[in-house]
Design a protein around this nucleic acid. Structure first.
Length: 674
DNA sequence: TACATACAC
DNA sequence: AATGGTGTATGTA
């Protein structure tokens, strides 16, 4: 959406067009410790350099020294290294090579020219400061004050008053407050925006039934067909009224149609939209930004007009050329689209065929003319940022929580997936993803979790003996396919096992049978918590009475999948997990066991867990393990194997995060002392 | 296939 | 107290 980019223009670009980008980089560099990517990306007219400098200084002061800032520096270095590598490559080329490439590029360009198409009229509609505009509409007291939508962590958008202070989308609220102490931050109301978006879409569909929404506030239309039909419209079909009954009749040209669309949007929603009209989507998108807000712009449908438009257009304005590409291109003197043509010989040698072809098309002002909905979705994911989590038990609990949420979403769209990707972001903002593909697609929480958990376990082990300190975790399913009815009813061995297990025991002896009850069990108000866990209030780490029965099914280790005999309370449970994770097949384990001065210490040959139990319980454990193992062997194709053991994917944890102080929620009970 | 990056919104 | 979430595409190995 217009308000979410890290750059935008809201008045006609005019002078900005030529020098905006350069200006900005210079100003930013002087105030942000050389960190361009942190600076206010702003090429708005009417904002003095003084303001810009002050804004960048505030941003810098608020950011420097933070983990976030350090990571931005790291990434900046990476980009610099890429540019340096590129530079080196460039120097290895000789002039003759480049000339040759130019000829080749010209041939490609001829092919592109061949495809140039003026037969379609493409429109890009973009609501102005959408979320903020909706909030202002519904609460007029917000109208003439600086205001933004979002939270203290992140703003989705800001109104134009706030933008004058440098407050913009994708800026954390606390920095925005510093820039503009009077800023009012309104929380997002997605349901409301969705409704408004629906109202707008209803209008757009009348001009193009195949209209393609890109988000809640943006859409592409191909109005070619409408224009043809409109020639036969009578006056009434081109006449619309305001709420007050004031009438307006619109003409038959593309610009008239777009005026009409914008008029109708405003009448219906009291919100304004901007629009671009052009022979292709790439240009239409750029145009909708040109006279924003509440404006429109058309590029005449002939080659010369397009070439004129594209001549001085900064490449950064083009959808698909972002911050990094822009600085890479800038490093070799490519700033405008015509520069892309000038440097075509070099670009051909430096970039992949796909990228280069794209650059050539941009330089010629050629873009896609087919506005149609993308095919089916390719992936679905859930991720969450949180205050640091580093203890394995909590990491696994979080992972399970995410898997549950993801499966819920998958089921809503009746999808199953084959590839599972775990995403983690450390407290240093370093992001890693790990993926594993199953043999068959699934939408089963346990199967999903067993894989995600294995990936997480590997990560935890990888940084052992240091703890894995995370600020974000995510789970993604890809390789999607429809969860057909047949496969819904078809019971896999795995599901059968699950079924036969019947009611599943949860930690602390809680017994639930279905997901609903599982979840309701987690609610604070749930009677189980208040009534069935005596002593829980006073000593969350104390052993609840109900869990001291002989059968320790309450504690299921997420690493080894066992119900270790020695786990009688949370503290020992956590110790068991750590033991499992970090002291498996090596000497350390013996050390640890020795430290504890246990009389009995046996390592289960199947699951490798060290058990500190009398010989007969040990044997029982091994028997159980072997049994389970045999079954798992059958199921192994569906679960990620590890050298040590195969996983069953039994749900290890209650997974709901406490909502408020979480006094009595189960997750709290996992926070054992130590 | 797995992973990292870039990008959009 | 302190910088988001969801999805796609692409390059590389």
């Amino acid at each position: 959406m217009e308000e979410e980019g890290d750059e935008e223009g809201e008045e006609q670009w005019d002078q900005i067009w030529n020098q905006g980008e350069q200006d900005y980089v210079a100003a930013a560099g002087s105030n942000t410790g050389g960190l361009d990517r942190m600076a206010l990306n702003d090429n708005k007219a009417g904002m003095g350099n003084l303001d810009k400098e002050r804004i960048n200084k505030v941003i810098y002061e608020m950011s420097k020294g933070s983990k976030y800032y350090e990571n931005e520096q790291r990434k900046e270095e990476q980009v610099k290294a890429k540019i340096a590598a590129q530079h080196k490559q460039i120097q290895s080329f000789d002039a003759r090579e480049i000339e040759k490439s130019e000829l080749q590029a010209d041939a490609m360009l001829a092919a592109i020219e061949e495809m140039r198409d003026f037969s379609r009229t493409i429109v890009h509609i973009d609501m102005d400061a959408f979320y903020a505009a909706v909030e202002m509409r519904d609460n007029p007291s917000l109208k003439n004050i600086p205001m933004a939508v979002g939270g203290s962590a992140m703003l989705s958008t800001s109104n134009y008053e706030a933008r004058r202070f440098g407050v913009r989308a994708a800026m954390p609220g606390f920095i925005a407050k510093k820039l503009c102490p009077d800023l009012v931050i309104v929380p997002t109301n997605f349901d409301k925006y969705r409704q408004v978006s629906k109202d707008v879409k209803e209008i757009l569909l009348q001009y193009d039934p195949n209209m393609c929404p890109m988000s809640l506030d943006e859409a592409y239309l191909d109005i070619t067909q409408h224009l043809a039909e409109r020639k036969n419209f009578d006056a009434e079909q081109k006449t619309f009224r305001t709420a007050d009954g004031e009438q307006r009749m619109f003409g038959v040209d593309a610009e008239d149609v777009v005026q009409e669309i914008r008029f109708r949007i405003e009448v219906k929603t009291q919100l304004t939209a901007s629009a671009g009209i052009a022979p292709n989507m790439m240009l239409a998108k750029v145009c909708s930004d040109f006279n924003k807000p509440n404006g429109q712009y058309l590029i005449p449908f002939n080659r010369q007009a397009v070439m004129d438009f594209v001549k001085d257009l900064p490449v950064r304005k083009v959808c698909g050329i972002g911050r990094v590409s822009c600085s890479m291109l800038g490093a070799m003197g490519v700033v405008t689209c015509s520069d892309l043509f000038r440097k075509r010989g070099l670009l051909l040698k430096l970039y992949s065929a796909i990228s280069f072809n794209y650059f050539l098309r941009v330089s010629a002002g050629v873009g896609s003319t087919s506005v149609q909905r993308g095919d089916d979705r390719k992936s679905m994911s859930t991720e969450r940022t949180f205050a640091e989590i580093n203890r394995p038990a909590e990491l696994f609990a979080k992972c399970y929580e995410l898997c549950e949420a993801l499966v819920e979403d998958l089921k809503k769209e009746n999808l199953k997936g084959k590839t599972i990707t775990l995403k983690i972001k450390t407290i240093k903002y370093i992001v890693r993803t790990k993926a594993h593909s199953l043999l068959n697609a699934t939408q089963d929480v346990q199967l999903l979790y067993s894989t995600a958990r294995d990936l997480l376990r590997t990560e935890i082990r990888l940084c052992s003996p240091e703890p894995l300190r995370l600020r974000l975790m995510g789970v993604r399913m890809s390789n999607l396919s429809p969860a057909s009815k047949s496969s819904d009813t078809q019971i896999t061995i795995h599901q059968m096992l699950k079924k036969s297990r019947g009611e599943q025991k949860l930690p602390f002896g809680a017994v639930v049978s279905g997901a609903d009850r599982f979840l309701s069990f987690m609610e604070q108000k749930d009677p189980y918590v208040d009534e069935d866990l005596p002593g829980a209030n006073a000593f969350p780490d104390e052993v609840p009475h109900t869990s001291t029965e002989k059968d320790n099914t309450e504690f299921i280790c997420p690493v080894c999948d066992e119900h270790p005999e020695d786990c009688v309370d949370l503290r020992t449970f956590n110790e068991h997990i750590d033991l499992c994770l970090f002291h498996t097949n090596d000497e350390k384990k013996e050390e640890k066991v020795e430290e504890k001065g246990e009389d009995f210490a046996f390592k289960c040959p199947v699951c490798c867990v060290v058990l500190k139990s009398p010989l007969d319980s040990f044997n029982a454990h091994v028997d159980a393990c072997l049994n389970r193992s045999a079954i798992k062997e059958i199921l192994s194709e569906e679960s990620l194997s590890t050298p040590r053991k195969r996983s069953s994917g039994a749900s290890p944890f209650p997974a709901k995060k406490p909502k408020t102080d979480g006094r009595h929620t189960l997750l709290n009970y996992f926070k054992s002392p130590k």
